[in-house]
Design a protein around this nucleic acid. Structure first.
Lengths: 201, 201
DNA sequence: ATAGTTTTGTCCATATGTGTACAAAACTTT
DNA sequence: AAAGTTTTGTACACATATGGACAAAACTAT
């Protein structure tokens, strides 16, 4: 029913997400994205409503493929500390491996968005803070599992971990070498008593 | 000689720096800054040459008042670890104390700038990497002073510290409470064996 | 006061960017 | 084929943004 769309909506979101990741939210104007997609702005507005709505859809796509997505979905059967170590190693690999050095879309947005985009900013803030909350849950599980001593201050360590994660996502833009990046992370993890050798599963 | 400027150039740079800090480099157009300063764009170009040149001058002003400026100037007479602990505490206080939650101008720029501003991006990258180098120097001094054991891997710890610093400057945009922010930092510093109680001098 | 210098206001051309309006195009269903 | 629906192309009105040109304004030094 109705005229069919000339483009694949999902593929368009993926492309738009890559553009926003590359150039940032504000630099990704409706005009620019539309031209990248090879569609008219009228089609853009028709398909996505607004740039802000598209960004939200792009975020969902981003989350699904992000190296820290174990902070959102369900957990694999694996010791928690091994899981965390693997996650951090995966982040280092992804950030250093990106030839464009784009860092993390979410963290870039946290940096970029100011009061003028209050709603999006709060969305991003929420994502970051819930990441910290999730890390705290994971550490609590590790305590229950006997992977960590009962005396562990899981709240403090979760905040430290989230800070480490935010840091690496931005630091990776300046420090382009994966070994150095990982050294930085591993050193911190070891200091926190949270580093575990593990299989790269 | 010649017609006198209608505005204070230094004050204008300070104001422009605050605007760029608030809204980011790209959002700070020549038009916007000129209007904030209450001058015409012709005066802007005449006084500063270009937006990029003004940004460089703004960076100098920023560095001078940044809570991490001990990473550039000369060192106060103080144990190194105490100095570092104080610096991190000062960063937490500054970031949490900023009602606008602007984070750090340099780190924001590292996040924001992409290939299209290659020169500025390299400038910022350099600043961040030289921060890491300076931290490594400081830790080496601490080893020489006997504040740290000879076996300390100063390179690894310096990278971890710089990562911590980058992290806190961005994380502070989501985590607005100074106590929580400091808890995150203190936990990491303790883990690295670099935390020292000290006077707030 | 006159000559020289620098800043400033105004105008230009051009490009980008937003959001809406509306008719033509391209479908589906009956 | 006709009616209904959705996408698309084109146009409009407006604001933002860049950077240059150039004359008027506001000073200093002679």
């Amino acid at each position: 029913m109705g005229r069919p769309s000339s483009f694949d909506r999902d593929a368009a979101i993926e492309t738009a997400m890559q553009e926003m990741w590359r150039h940032g939210y504000n630099a990704s104007s409706v005009k620019a994205i539309s031209e990248t997609l090879g569609i008219k702005r009228s089609s853009f507005y028709n398909a996505f409503g607004s740039r802000e709505e598209l960004f939200k859809e792009a975020l969902t796509v981003y989350f699904a493929q992000s190296p820290d997505n174990i902070l959102r979905g369900e957990l694999p059967e694996m010791p928690v500390l091994e899981l965390l170590t693997n996650m951090f190693r995966a982040i280092c690999a992804a950030r250093a491996g990106d030839p464009e050095g784009r860092g993390c879309l979410v963290i870039n947005s946290l940096s970029e968005l100011d009061e003028s985009d209050a709603e999006l900013r709060d969305l991003i803030k929420g994502a970051v803070l819930s990441g910290a909350a999730r890390l705290e849950e994971l550490l609590s599980i590790a305590v229950q599992n006997g992977e960590l001593p009962e005396t562990t201050n899981v709240h403090a360590k979760a905040l430290a971990l989230q800070n480490l994660m935010v840091g690496i996502n931005v630091f990776s833009k300046a420090l382009r070498d994966e070994e150095q990046l990982w050294l930085s992370v591993k050193t911190t993890l070891e200091g926190l008593g949270l580093y575990r050798e593990g299989n790269l599963a």
